[in-house]
Amino acid sequence: MAAPVSYQSVLTGKVASTVAVGTSVTEGQTLVTVETLAGPMAAAKSTVNGTVTAVDVTVGSDISRDQVVVTVESK
């Protein structure tokens, strides 16, 4: 049964990239990356297969750990 799954950032930093609304994602796929001293790092990864229904951050914005960043409708 389809259900919305909200993803929180595991890192604090400046958003480097995000998936787009409507994108089909698979388990393990990176949803949001942030800039770090070591380069871009995954801040949120999907734990389900589904479709992105909301992206709550934009590239260049600052995010905090535990902030909701993406919602995926699971398949």
Score class of each variant (00 low, 15 high):
residue 1 M to Y: 07
residue 1 M to S: 05
residue 1 M to D: 04
residue 2 A to L: 10
residue 2 A to P: 07
residue 2 A to W: 01
residue 2 A to I: 09
residue 4 P to K: 03
residue 4 P to E: 11
residue 4 P to W: 02
residue 5 V to K: 10
residue 5 V to E: 10
residue 6 S to G: 07
residue 6 S to R: 03
residue 7 Y to M: 08
residue 8 Q to D: 08
residue 8 Q to I: 11
residue 9 S to K: 03
residue 10 V to S: 09
residue 10 V to C: 03
residue 11 L to H: 14
residue 12 T to S: 15
residue 12 T to Q: 15
residue 12 T to G: 15
residue 12 T to Y: 15
residue 13 G to A: 15
residue 15 V to H: 10
residue 16 A to H: 15
residue 16 A to F: 09
residue 17 S to D: 13
residue 18 T to L: 11
residue 18 T to D: 04
residue 18 T to G: 08
residue 19 V to K: 08
residue 19 V to W: 06
residue 19 V to N: 03
residue 20 A to F: 12
residue 20 A to R: 11
residue 20 A to G: 06
residue 21 V to S: 06
residue 22 G to S: 10
residue 22 G to N: 06
residue 22 G to D: 09
residue 23 T to S: 12
residue 23 T to M: 11
residue 24 S to K: 14
residue 24 S to G: 04
residue 25 V to A: 07
residue 26 T to F: 01
residue 26 T to L: 06
residue 27 E to M: 02
residue 27 E to Q: 13
residue 29 Q to R: 08
residue 30 T to C: 05
residue 31 L to Q: 06
residue 31 L to F: 03
residue 31 L to G: 05
residue 31 L to W: 06
residue 32 V to D: 14
residue 32 V to T: 12
residue 33 T to P: 12
residue 33 T to H: 02
residue 33 T to C: 12
residue 33 T to N: 10
residue 35 E to N: 15
residue 35 E to G: 07
residue 35 E to Y: 15
residue 36 T to Y: 09
residue 36 T to P: 09
residue 36 T to Q: 09
residue 38 A to E: 15
residue 38 A to S: 15
residue 39 G to A: 15
residue 41 M to W: 09
residue 42 A to C: 10
residue 42 A to S: 15
residue 42 A to M: 11
residue 43 A to P: 00
residue 43 A to Y: 09
residue 44 A to R: 05
residue 44 A to N: 13
residue 45 K to Y: 02
residue 45 K to W: 02
residue 45 K to G: 06
residue 45 K to T: 15
residue 46 S to C: 10
residue 47 T to R: 05
residue 47 T to L: 01
residue 47 T to K: 10
residue 48 V to P: 04
residue 49 N to C: 00
residue 49 N to P: 02
residue 50 G to F: 01
residue 50 G to A: 02
residue 50 G to Y: 02
residue 51 T to H: 03
residue 51 T to L: 08
residue 51 T to G: 02
residue 52 V to K: 01
residue 52 V to E: 08
residue 53 T to N: 04
residue 56 D to W: 01
residue 56 D to R: 05
residue 56 D to V: 01
residue 58 T to S: 15
residue 58 T to F: 07
residue 58 T to M: 01
residue 59 V to C: 09
residue 60 G to T: 01
residue 60 G to C: 14
residue 61 S to A: 14
residue 61 S to R: 05
residue 61 S to T: 10
residue 61 S to D: 07
residue 62 D to M: 10
residue 62 D to I: 08
residue 62 D to Y: 11
residue 63 I to M: 13
residue 63 I to R: 12
residue 64 S to N: 14
residue 65 R to L: 08
residue 65 R to Q: 13
residue 66 D to S: 09
residue 66 D to C: 00
residue 67 Q to N: 09
residue 69 V to M: 12
residue 69 V to L: 12
residue 69 V to D: 03
residue 69 V to E: 09
residue 69 V to K: 07
residue 70 V to A: 05
residue 70 V to P: 02
residue 70 V to E: 05
residue 71 T to A: 05
residue 71 T to W: 12
residue 71 T to L: 00
residue 71 T to P: 05
residue 72 V to W: 03
residue 72 V to F: 03
residue 73 E to V: 04
residue 73 E to W: 04
residue 74 S to P: 07
residue 75 K to M: 06
residue 75 K to S: 13
residue 75 K to L: 07
